[in-house]
């Protein structure tokens, strides 16, 4: 790899992690305000451990993000495969762009009005249904970008050799597009776990369907304390360890994912 690419990649990660380091440091700040350093303290981690609202809402966010990502990745990938294999249609493309363009507040109010109209019970399930809407579009777009350069003769060969549609998908197509599907799933998870407005409107009334972003925004008026930074620090470290472990487990197993 050319040297400048390595340097650029390093600089990009530095850019992406700069504010993360700041918020991690602030999670150890004795002072409650981010503007002054009051000395090192683990106080906020202690407070976090005894704050059931933050912990429960973080758990709700994980559930919403995981389930909506799983559904949207599956549906969105199938949709991308279907769309790329059929005749181009401007109307269908427009339908697939729409969830990305519709302002969050419009989708939020529209879905709440709709759920109320059809008497659908609000809760984590309605947030998940809503998040799948925009995530389908993002997943579909990422997978379609990959499929533009896909060699369809491979799947045709597989079918010619007598493999069924499912076998062909599972053994040929999916392994080839897997990196794009993983990228799409990462994108969907990230969008869902941090989404606020749509979640707020489609959530049920009560703590049981409060997500972490809803909890954090609601704290604005009386102070977002470093407990949230402590929470974010833990999320980062746990995810980091998970990624490293997964990478070690995979080493040598997949000779080219």
């Amino acid at each position: 790899m050319p040297r400048f690419l390595t340097v650029h990649l390093g600089a990009t990660y530095a850019f992406l992690y700069m504010p993360i380091l700041v918020l991690m440091v602030l999670s150890f700040n004795k002072a409650g305000l981010p503007t002054a350093w009051g000395g090192f303290s683990l106080e906020w981690y202690g407070k976090l451990a005894t704050n059931p609202k933050i912990l429960a809402s973080a758990w709700n966010s994980v559930i919403v993000a995981c389930v909506s990502t799983a559904i949207a990745t599956t549906i969105g990938t199938l949709l991308a495969l279907g769309v790329e294999r059929s005749k181009p249609s401007a109307a269908r493309d427009a339908l697939l762009f729409a969830p990305m363009i519709i302002p969050d507040i419009v989708l939020a109010i529209a879905l709440l009005s709709f759920f109320t109209l059809v008497k659908f019970t609000l809760g984590l399930q309605s947030i998940i249904l809503a998040h799948v809407v925009f995530n389908i579009a993002f997943v579909c777009a990422v997978v379609r970008a990959r499929l533009k350069s896909f060699d369809w003769s491979l799947t045709e060969a597989s079918r010619d050799l007598g493999a069924g549609a499912f076998t062909t998908f599972w053994r040929i197509t999916l392994p080839l597009i897997l990196p794009a599907v993983i990228a799409a799933a990462l994108l969907a998870f990230t969008l869902s776990v941090d989404e606020f407005i749509i979640a707020y409107f489609t959530a049920g009334a009560g703590q049981s369907s409060t997500t972490l972003p809803m909890q954090i925004y609601a704290m604005i008026r009386f102070g977002v304390t470093p407990e949230i930074n402590a929470m974010a620090t833990i999320v980062m470290l746990v995810s980091f360890v998970l990624v490293l472990t997964a990478q070690r487990l995979n080493r040598g197993r997949i000779p080219g994912a």
């Binding site: 507040i105 109010i109 709440l112 009005s113 759920f115 109320t116 609000l122 707020y200 409107f201 959530a203 049920g204 009334a205 009560g206 703590q207 049981s208 409060t210 809803m214 909890q215 925004y217 609601a218 604005i220 008026r221």
Partner: peptide, 24 residues
């Protein structure tokens, strides 16, 4: 007592207007 949280007047107002206040 079950407590839901809102960030602003505007938000809870929007939510209650769209849903008729169901659940609260």
């Amino acid at each position: 007592l079950e407590v839901a949280v809102h960030a602003t007047n505007e938000e809870i107002m929007g939510k209650v207007t769209a849903s008729g206040g169901q659940g609260f």
